[in-house]
Protein backbone atom coordinates (compact mmCIF):
# COMPACT_ATOMS: atom_id res chain seq x y z
CA UNK A 1 0.00 0.00 0.00
CA UNK A 2 1.21 3.46 -0.82
CA UNK A 3 1.99 5.33 2.35
CA UNK A 4 -0.01 8.44 2.97
CA UNK A 5 2.85 10.82 2.40
CA UNK A 6 3.43 9.53 -1.10
CA UNK A 7 0.47 11.50 -2.26
CA UNK A 8 -0.68 13.63 0.59
CA UNK A 9 1.16 14.95 3.57
CA UNK A 10 -0.47 14.31 6.92
CA UNK A 11 1.43 15.51 9.96
CA UNK A 12 2.08 13.46 13.04
CA UNK A 13 0.17 14.27 16.24
CA UNK A 14 1.32 17.67 17.39
CA UNK A 15 1.66 19.39 20.72
CA UNK A 16 1.68 22.95 19.34
CA UNK A 17 -2.03 23.65 19.04
CA UNK A 18 -2.75 23.10 22.72
CA UNK A 19 -0.09 25.66 23.62
CA UNK A 20 -1.92 28.12 21.42
CA UNK A 21 -5.19 27.41 23.17
CA UNK A 22 -3.68 27.84 26.62
CA UNK A 23 -2.06 31.05 25.41
CA UNK A 24 -5.32 32.54 24.16
CA UNK A 25 -7.15 31.50 27.30
CA UNK A 26 -4.69 33.24 29.56
CA UNK A 27 -4.54 36.27 27.27
CA UNK A 28 -8.33 36.56 27.38
CA UNK A 29 -8.56 36.07 31.15
CA UNK A 30 -5.62 38.42 31.69
CA UNK A 31 -6.93 41.17 29.44
CA UNK A 32 -10.45 40.97 30.84
CA UNK A 33 -9.15 41.24 34.41
CA UNK A 34 -6.72 43.99 33.59
CA UNK A 35 -9.29 46.11 31.74
CA UNK A 36 -11.51 45.86 34.78
CA UNK A 37 -8.92 47.08 37.21
CA UNK A 38 -7.06 43.97 38.37
CA UNK A 39 -3.41 44.84 37.84
CA UNK A 40 -2.28 41.20 37.95
CA UNK A 41 -4.24 40.75 34.72
CA UNK A 42 -1.34 42.39 32.90
CA UNK A 43 0.98 39.58 33.85
CA UNK A 44 -1.43 36.89 32.81
CA UNK A 45 -1.83 38.68 29.50
CA UNK A 46 1.92 38.91 28.97
CA UNK A 47 2.35 35.27 29.95
CA UNK A 48 -0.24 34.37 27.35
CA UNK A 49 1.52 36.40 24.68
CA UNK A 50 4.81 34.72 25.49
CA UNK A 51 3.27 31.27 25.27
CA UNK A 52 1.72 32.28 21.98
CA UNK A 53 5.08 33.36 20.59
CA UNK A 54 6.65 30.15 21.82
CA UNK A 55 3.94 28.18 20.07
CA UNK A 56 4.18 30.16 16.83
CA UNK A 57 7.95 29.80 16.78
CA UNK A 58 7.74 26.08 17.40
CA UNK A 59 4.95 25.48 14.94
CA UNK A 60 6.55 27.44 12.12
CA UNK A 61 9.92 25.84 12.77
CA UNK A 62 8.27 22.47 12.36
CA UNK A 63 6.64 23.63 9.15
CA UNK A 64 9.93 25.00 7.80
CA UNK A 65 11.67 21.71 8.57
CA UNK A 66 8.94 19.71 6.90
CA UNK A 67 9.08 21.95 3.88
CA UNK A 68 12.85 21.80 3.54
CA UNK A 69 12.72 18.08 4.25
CA UNK A 70 10.80 17.68 1.02
CA UNK A 71 7.57 16.56 2.62
CA UNK A 72 5.41 19.07 0.80
CA UNK A 73 4.56 18.04 -2.70
CA UNK A 74 2.80 20.05 -5.38
CA UNK A 75 -0.58 19.33 -3.90
CA UNK A 76 0.35 20.62 -0.47
CA UNK A 77 1.66 23.72 -2.20
CA UNK A 78 -1.72 24.28 -3.81
CA UNK A 79 -3.41 23.79 -0.44
CA UNK A 80 -1.19 26.51 1.01
CA UNK A 81 -2.13 28.84 -1.82
CA UNK A 82 -5.83 28.31 -1.34
CA UNK A 83 -5.60 28.74 2.40
CA UNK A 84 -3.52 31.91 2.27
CA UNK A 85 -5.93 33.45 -0.23
CA UNK A 86 -8.90 32.69 1.97
CA UNK A 87 -7.07 33.94 5.03
CA UNK A 88 -6.37 37.24 3.29
CA UNK A 89 -10.02 37.40 2.29
CA UNK A 90 -10.98 37.06 5.95
CA UNK A 91 -8.62 39.93 6.78
CA UNK A 92 -10.23 42.01 4.05
CA UNK A 93 -13.59 41.45 5.70
CA UNK A 94 -12.17 42.44 9.07
CA UNK A 95 -11.02 45.77 7.69
CA UNK A 96 -14.30 46.08 5.82
CA UNK A 97 -16.09 46.25 9.16
CA UNK A 98 -14.02 49.25 10.21
CA UNK A 99 -14.25 50.96 6.84
CA UNK A 100 -17.98 50.32 7.04
CA UNK A 101 -18.05 52.11 10.39
CA UNK A 102 -16.12 55.03 8.89
CA UNK A 103 -18.56 55.40 6.00
CA UNK A 104 -21.54 55.00 8.27
CA UNK A 105 -20.32 57.76 10.57
CA UNK A 106 -19.36 60.12 7.77
CA UNK A 107 -22.43 59.57 5.63
CA UNK A 108 -25.16 58.75 8.14
CA UNK A 109 -24.62 59.30 11.82
CA UNK A 110 -22.67 62.56 11.90
CA UNK A 111 -24.86 64.34 9.29
CA UNK A 112 -27.88 63.05 11.18
CA UNK A 113 -26.66 64.52 14.45
CA UNK A 114 -26.30 67.87 12.69
CA UNK A 115 -29.71 67.53 11.06
CA UNK A 116 -32.55 69.85 11.82
CA UNK A 117 -34.26 67.61 14.33
CA UNK A 118 -31.16 66.96 16.40
CA UNK A 119 -30.12 70.59 16.06
CA UNK A 120 -33.27 71.88 17.62
CA UNK A 121 -34.02 69.20 20.15
CA UNK A 122 -30.79 67.68 21.36
CA UNK A 123 -27.55 69.18 20.13
CA UNK A 124 -28.02 72.86 19.34
CA UNK A 125 -25.07 74.36 17.56
CA UNK A 126 -23.45 71.13 16.40
CA UNK A 127 -22.09 71.52 12.89
CA UNK A 128 -21.90 68.27 11.04
CA UNK A 129 -18.76 68.83 9.01
CA UNK A 130 -16.22 66.13 8.52
CA UNK A 131 -13.78 65.83 10.26
CA UNK A 132 -16.03 65.86 13.29
CA UNK A 133 -15.69 64.50 16.78
CA UNK A 134 -19.23 64.54 18.03
CA UNK A 135 -21.79 66.89 19.48
CA UNK A 136 -21.07 65.87 23.07
CA UNK A 137 -17.32 66.39 22.88
CA UNK A 138 -16.25 69.85 23.90
CA UNK A 139 -12.52 69.59 23.28
CA UNK A 140 -11.15 70.62 19.91
CA UNK A 141 -8.71 68.82 17.69
CA UNK A 142 -7.12 69.27 14.29
CA UNK A 143 -7.33 66.46 11.76
CA UNK A 144 -4.22 64.79 10.40
CA UNK A 145 -3.08 66.30 7.12
CA UNK A 146 -2.56 63.97 4.21
CA UNK A 147 0.44 65.46 2.48
CA UNK A 148 3.10 65.26 5.16
CA UNK A 149 4.10 62.00 6.73
CA UNK A 150 1.11 60.04 5.39
CA UNK A 151 2.05 60.79 1.79
CA UNK A 152 5.64 59.85 2.56
CA UNK A 153 4.41 56.63 4.12
CA UNK A 154 2.41 55.88 1.00
CA UNK A 155 5.58 56.23 -1.00
CA UNK A 156 7.44 53.97 1.42
CA UNK A 157 4.88 51.19 1.31
CA UNK A 158 4.49 51.37 -2.44
CA UNK A 159 8.26 51.08 -2.90
CA UNK A 160 8.32 48.19 -0.46
CA UNK A 161 5.84 46.43 -2.74
CA UNK A 162 8.34 46.92 -5.55
CA UNK A 163 11.34 45.71 -3.55
CA UNK A 164 9.58 42.57 -2.38
CA UNK A 165 8.70 41.77 -5.98
CA UNK A 166 12.30 42.40 -6.98
CA UNK A 167 13.36 39.99 -4.27
CA UNK A 168 10.93 37.46 -5.64
CA UNK A 169 12.48 37.81 -9.10
CA UNK A 170 15.82 37.16 -7.50
CA UNK A 171 14.47 33.99 -5.91
CA UNK A 172 13.04 32.82 -9.22
CA UNK A 173 16.38 33.41 -10.98
CA UNK A 174 18.16 31.78 -8.05
CA UNK A 175 20.03 35.02 -7.50
CA UNK A 176 20.38 34.85 -3.72
CA UNK A 177 21.99 38.28 -3.37
CA UNK A 178 19.08 39.97 -5.10
CA UNK A 179 16.68 37.95 -2.96
CA UNK A 180 18.35 38.87 0.29
CA UNK A 181 18.91 42.51 -0.53
CA UNK A 182 15.38 42.86 -1.81
CA UNK A 183 14.09 41.50 1.48
CA UNK A 184 16.41 43.69 3.53
CA UNK A 185 15.17 46.77 1.71
CA UNK A 186 11.55 45.73 2.14
CA UNK A 187 12.04 45.22 5.85
CA UNK A 188 13.85 48.54 6.17
CA UNK A 189 11.03 50.32 4.36
CA UNK A 190 8.46 48.60 6.55
CA UNK A 191 10.29 49.60 9.72
CA UNK A 192 10.68 53.17 8.56
CA UNK A 193 6.97 53.24 7.89
CA UNK A 194 6.31 52.04 11.42
CA UNK A 195 8.71 54.59 12.84
CA UNK A 196 6.93 57.40 11.01
CA UNK A 197 3.60 56.04 12.15
CA UNK A 198 4.69 56.17 15.78
CA UNK A 199 6.02 59.68 15.29
CA UNK A 200 2.73 60.66 13.68
CA UNK A 201 0.77 59.33 16.66
CA UNK A 202 2.94 61.29 19.06
CA UNK A 203 2.48 64.40 16.95
CA UNK A 204 -1.30 63.81 16.82
CA UNK A 205 -1.66 63.52 20.55
CA UNK A 206 0.76 66.27 21.58
CA UNK A 207 0.16 68.92 18.92
CA UNK A 208 -3.18 68.26 17.29
CA UNK A 209 -4.98 67.10 20.42
CA UNK A 210 -6.13 64.20 18.27
CA UNK A 211 -6.86 61.28 20.58
CA UNK A 212 -8.76 58.05 20.25
CA UNK A 213 -11.48 59.59 22.40
CA UNK A 214 -12.07 62.38 19.88
CA UNK A 215 -15.40 61.01 18.75
CA UNK A 216 -16.06 59.80 15.24
CA UNK A 217 -12.83 61.06 13.71
CA UNK A 218 -10.58 59.98 16.57
CA UNK A 219 -12.06 56.51 16.82
CA UNK A 220 -11.97 55.70 13.13
CA UNK A 221 -8.57 57.32 12.63
CA UNK A 222 -6.84 55.42 15.40
CA UNK A 223 -8.63 52.11 14.95
CA UNK A 224 -8.07 51.94 11.22
CA UNK A 225 -4.48 53.14 11.21
CA UNK A 226 -3.82 51.20 14.40
CA UNK A 227 -5.00 47.88 13.03
CA UNK A 228 -3.16 48.60 9.83
CA UNK A 229 0.01 49.37 11.73
CA UNK A 230 -0.45 46.16 13.69
CA UNK A 231 -0.66 44.25 10.42
CA UNK A 232 2.46 45.98 9.11
CA UNK A 233 4.21 44.89 12.29
CA UNK A 234 3.15 41.30 11.78
CA UNK A 235 4.13 41.51 8.13
CA UNK A 236 7.54 42.87 9.03
CA UNK A 237 8.11 40.12 11.56
CA UNK A 238 7.15 37.55 8.96
CA UNK A 239 9.51 39.15 6.44
CA UNK A 240 12.33 39.00 8.98
CA UNK A 241 11.66 35.31 9.55
CA UNK A 242 11.69 34.75 5.80
CA UNK A 243 14.93 36.73 5.53
CA UNK A 244 16.57 34.44 8.08
CA UNK A 245 15.31 31.43 6.20
CA UNK A 246 16.72 32.83 2.95
CA UNK A 247 20.06 33.46 4.59
CA UNK A 248 19.98 29.89 5.86
CA UNK A 249 19.55 28.78 2.27
CA UNK A 250 15.90 27.82 2.37
CA UNK A 251 13.58 28.01 -0.66
CA UNK A 252 14.18 27.00 -4.23
CA UNK A 253 13.00 28.66 -7.44
CA UNK A 254 10.27 26.06 -7.83
CA UNK A 255 9.39 25.63 -4.16
CA UNK A 256 8.99 28.72 -2.01
CA UNK A 257 5.44 29.27 -0.93
CA UNK A 258 6.60 30.50 2.48
CA UNK A 259 8.13 33.47 0.72
CA UNK A 260 5.20 34.04 -1.58
CA UNK A 261 2.59 33.82 1.15
CA UNK A 262 4.34 36.57 3.08
CA UNK A 263 4.68 38.62 -0.09
CA UNK A 264 0.96 38.29 -0.73
CA UNK A 265 0.28 39.40 2.80
CA UNK A 266 2.57 42.37 2.34
CA UNK A 267 0.74 43.44 -0.81
CA UNK A 268 -2.56 43.12 1.02
CA UNK A 269 -1.30 45.40 3.78
CA UNK A 270 -0.19 47.78 1.05
CA UNK A 271 -3.63 47.93 -0.56
CA UNK A 272 -5.28 48.54 2.79
CA UNK A 273 -2.93 51.46 3.29
CA UNK A 274 -3.91 52.97 -0.04
CA UNK A 275 -7.56 52.86 0.98
CA UNK A 276 -6.63 54.37 4.33
CA UNK A 277 -4.68 57.11 2.69
CA UNK A 278 -7.59 58.01 0.44
CA UNK A 279 -10.48 57.74 2.87
CA UNK A 280 -8.94 58.51 6.24
CA UNK A 281 -6.26 61.07 5.46
CA UNK A 282 -7.08 62.62 2.15
CA UNK A 283 -10.79 62.90 1.36
Amino acid sequence: MLSQSARYFIPEPSRWPIFGSVALLSMALGAASWFNGASWGKFLLIAGVLILFYMLAGWFTTVAHESEGGKYNKQVDISFRWSMSWFIFSEVMFFAAFFGALFYMRVISVPDLGGLESQQLIWPGFKAEWPASGPGIKEHFSPMGAWGIPALNTLLLLSSGVTVTWAHWGLLKNNRMQLIWGLVMTIALGMTFLGFQIYEYAHAVSELNLKISMGAYGATFFMLTGFHGFHVTIGTIMLIVILFRCVAGHFRPEHHFGFEGVAWYWHFVDVVWLLLFIFVYWL
Binding site: A101, Y104, M105, I108, S109, V110, D112, L113, A132, S133, G134, P135, G136, I137, K211, I212, S213, G215, A216, Y217, G218, A219, F222, M223
Partner: peptide
Amino acid sequence: FGTNFFNAAGGGDPVM
Protein backbone atom coordinates in the same frame (compact mmCIF):
# COMPACT_ATOMS: atom_id res chain seq x y z
CA PHE B 1 -10.41 52.76 25.31
CA GLY B 2 -12.62 55.77 24.88
CA THR B 3 -13.83 55.29 21.31
CA ASN B 4 -17.33 56.44 20.48
CA PHE B 5 -18.47 54.07 17.75
CA PHE B 6 -21.83 53.47 19.33
CA ASN B 7 -22.29 56.68 21.25
CA ALA B 8 -24.20 59.55 19.67
CA ALA B 9 -22.43 62.16 21.80
CA GLY B 10 -19.23 61.13 20.05
CA GLY B 11 -20.67 61.11 16.56
CA GLY B 12 -21.39 57.38 16.64
CA ASP B 13 -24.66 55.51 16.63
CA PRO B 14 -25.93 52.45 18.49
CA VAL B 15 -27.90 51.58 15.36
CA MET B 16 -24.60 51.21 13.54
